[in-house]
Design a protein around this nucleic acid. Sequence first.
RNA 1: GAGUCGUUAGCUCAGUCGGUAGAGCAACGCCCUUUUAAGGCGUGGGUCCUGGGUUCGAGUCCCAGACGACUCACCA
Length: 528
Amino acid sequence: MSDEIRSQRLAKLARLRELGLDPYAVERFPFERSADQLLADFDALAPQSEDEQATKRVRFAGRLVSQRLMGKAAFAHISDGDGRIQGYFKKDELGETLWEAFNLLDIGDHVGVEGFLFVTKTGEKSIHVTSLTPLSKSLHTLPLGKEKDGQQWYGLSDVDQRYRHRNLDLVCNPAARRLLLLRSKIVRAVREFFDQKGFVEVETPLLQLEAGGAAARPFLTHYNAYDIDVKLRISLELYLKRIICGDVPKVFEIGRVFRNEGVSNRHNPEFTLLEWYEAYANLEDIMAFVEGLMAYVAMQAFGTTIVTMELATGEPEDEDCPTETVTMDFGKPWRRVNLMEEIERHTGLGRADLATLEDAKSALREREVINPVTGKRIDPDAEQHLGGLIEKLLEVFVEPTLVQPTFVVGYPLETSPLAKKDPNNPGMTRRFEGYIRGKELCNAFSEINDPIDQRERFEMQMDHRAGGDDEAHPMDEEFLFALENGMPPTGGCGIGIDRMVMLMTGAEHLREILLFPMMRPVGHVDED
RNA sequence: GAGUCGUUAGCUCAGUCGGUAGAGCAACGCCCUUUUAAGGCGUGGGUCCUGGGUUCGAGUCCCAGACGACUCACCA
């Protein structure tokens, strides 16, 4: 019973205090090398003779992760998170007090040790411990499991527990730790790349009167001082363009945005968005920029532009789920395709079939348009406008085929209220999205800088809203005023950072990338 | 929001036909001064997710609820 374990451990804590070794009273325990460094520099650090044992000392601290007690001697591994090293503890060298203290330690406690390096009979490089300092007491059993030859027994595998108690996940599961470190590297590489390209990093408001720049329902909250309702931002777009209007030609922001929508393996109500805007740049410039960014990030995070990942091809539930090795080279240019041409290639529906909403609906009714792999089809009556239907066709028939990095160019007017019209294709805009592994990575367009056009687009969105689309873009007079004062031609792009990490690491769930994903509270009672 | 499946010891999991709760690890005690999934002997530990119902009797069957996973819908 957990209370029993807890009281046992509190009793051990009390005894440590009686011995004058209160772990919580210690403030610092300096040591120079990580476990990995101790092992790497072993030959130089280990004493060559008994005389040197007194002078060639090492110190190390970490969490006790395994114990093998043998009466008056013991072995135990201490982990600093990244690596672990074995300690050898002997009663007649530690003395009565420290030996008792060692026996009061449990797996999960932090401990500092001092001693000299040596090799055990079985050949493991270890620390011969001559002194130890308890540094924290764990009041619970750590669900660490055991391992041998890289195979793990037991351990913490319940995903609910792993997400709710991420600290335990990080201690017990090396993969969780690996993803955290990889994400940090990737984000750092992104910042470096923008810095190298002369971009300025800015921060814009999270609290906004109207949440614009994307199609999503916002979170609502209240600002007491002004007694006004405000919304949490759903994108970074409009404020960043107002900075472009202020003649700062290259800006980017990495920030949290909030969308009041459901949770799935690719969605979380809050996520980290990267957006950047570059004056005097067009779509082709941005594509090249994305290619360069991804190549740089891959190089910094993995040391190569060639990223290999194991992807589940069956049910991830299944233990023997088949996997497929996918390799992508971010050193190569991405495939570039036209949206309408790709739809025609995968559905047989050409421009003539998709000229108007009515044409498209009757074409869908007349022909059996079914995705041969997933068996999915489209409900023609679900869409309010042609653009929505076209994007639906893209999602169902084209997206799953875009495994290798691909730019899809040319998005419909109705779903692109902030993108310039394509002068050569009525009803279409100068917009592209980048896809990897069948999932959207980025969304970019030539930004509208014509304030009259932008006003008309917002008005079109207001019509959609009146038609029942509560995610249609709101009117934003402040933004229009900025445009009326002049914005240079500008290319902009957005990338979901969490999803980018997910795509590059082969993770199947966004929640593996988010340290603390949204979870329903335990014991929640619905008020309805 | 809808459907399917799941929830048993701190962790990972068994539990047959409805008959009164099991294992390994972890914990506790004893032995053990070079072990590494250490070993040997012994001990304790359960709101079987919650609440109802059926039954002489429910971990097991029925109903409702909580939470999770997956699929779908919305979205990036």
